[in-house]
Design a protein around this nucleic acid. Structure first.
Lengths: 195, 195
DNA sequence: TAATTAGGCTAAAGGTTATTAGCTTAATTG
DNA sequence: CAATTAAGCTAATAACCTTTAGCCTAATTA
């Protein structure tokens, strides 16, 4: 792992915990194990680190939700849909990198247009788009009742997003959030899936 | 309006736009029309302003969602439920004070336990709790199909919360968000209400 | 009316922070 | 091997930011 990558790593951690304005270059350098002026051998300035991080966040996001690759094969039953949904949520909720990026975005979403857009993509269109495709596919196989896949995708993902946000700011509620999510997903399946 | 109140007002505006760490006492003073040192005749320090604001935000929140007062009389039909729901959303979305407080909370939610709790109350339990009571009441009158009012409240409010958040960070999407919210509420009513 | 208080101001202290200049050393390259 | 580059360091600068000290004036109170 190069020094540049270690800087980005530690910066992301600190930015997600204390915000960009609440983090000093000295703190970042200390975590990396170098002195602050050495950072400037790798980045033009503090802002440069921020913009590198938002690029990475956007790229990682594309990688996860932009392609069809991560949809995998379509679930073939109610049970399977529920299980894969829960598994995906659990991953999104607990993966340290994704978690940091999410908190980073939430904190900096108002910084400018670009941050705002990426946050929206991440929070709304991302997982939602993925579920739209899944539900669409399953609907055509008769596993979902006939309905608007876009609306259904929103309705299954929005409560999940809110509970994940809660767990992000109150980690002691992670289990509680997970339970609520499971209850919600089950209810969603009962209402909108066939048989 | 006292100087103290004007300070709190301008501070809330600035904190919601640039964050606490991104706002200088000098900026606040300038907006109020005084010099920075004069602030210290009204507050012990910058943090004191922050804590006064979070107190106010919590109080205002209690006032709006904590009591049953704002539920008003129960809607007596599907149409009425939809109309009052949309009206409430539109108010929450556009009222300048509430909007600032929401953005302020979103930005500062990770500052400490207290901020985190108030944000959760605001985003989750607040409107959600209100709708739980409404749905419960309407269910007992047969206007909603028999179901878990808590789950239904989550399902109607969560997508709304996400679209309001989008409109907060991308004001040019306010109309689009509102349309999506209306579509969602209508769909919700179609699925869960009787007749 | 005299004394006190409230609330503004200027000047400045004291701290922090991002950044630059310039040096050193190890690695890489011609 | 000589020269260059990469990447660290110390020292220092310059800006900024919060807060204090101390002064002044107008209003309030005894």
């Amino acid at each position: 792992m190069t020094t540049r990558d270690r800087i980005l790593n530690e910066a992301l951690t600190l930015f997600s915990e204390n915000g960009y304005d609440g983090t000093g270059v000295e703190q970042i350098a200390e975590k990396v194990g170098i002195k602050a002026p050495s950072l400037y051998k790798h980045f033009k300035g503090k802002e440069d680190i921020l913009y590198a991080l938002i690029d990475i966040t956007e790229a990682r996001y594309e990688e996860f939700f932009g392609s069809n690759r991560h949809i995998g094969k379509l679930p073939e039953s109610k049970e399977e849909f529920m299980q894969t949904a829960i598994k995906k949520v659990s991953f999104t909720m607990n993966d340290p990198m994704i978690r940091k990026m999410r908190k980073f975005l939430v904190r900096e979403q108002f910084r400018n247009e670009r941050f705002a857009e990426i946050t929206t993509k991440h929070q709304l269109h991302g997982i939602q788009g993925m579920y739209m495709k899944i539900i669409e596919g399953m609907m055509s196989k008769g596993l979902f009742k006939e309905d608007d896949p876009e609306l259904l995708a929103t309705e299954v993902t929005a409560p999940v997003a809110l509970w994940i946000a809660k767990a992000d700011r109150q980690p002691q509620c992670t289990r509680e959030s997970m339970e609520n999510i499971e209850k919600h997903v089950r209810h969603f399946c009962d209402v909108y899936m066939t048989e």
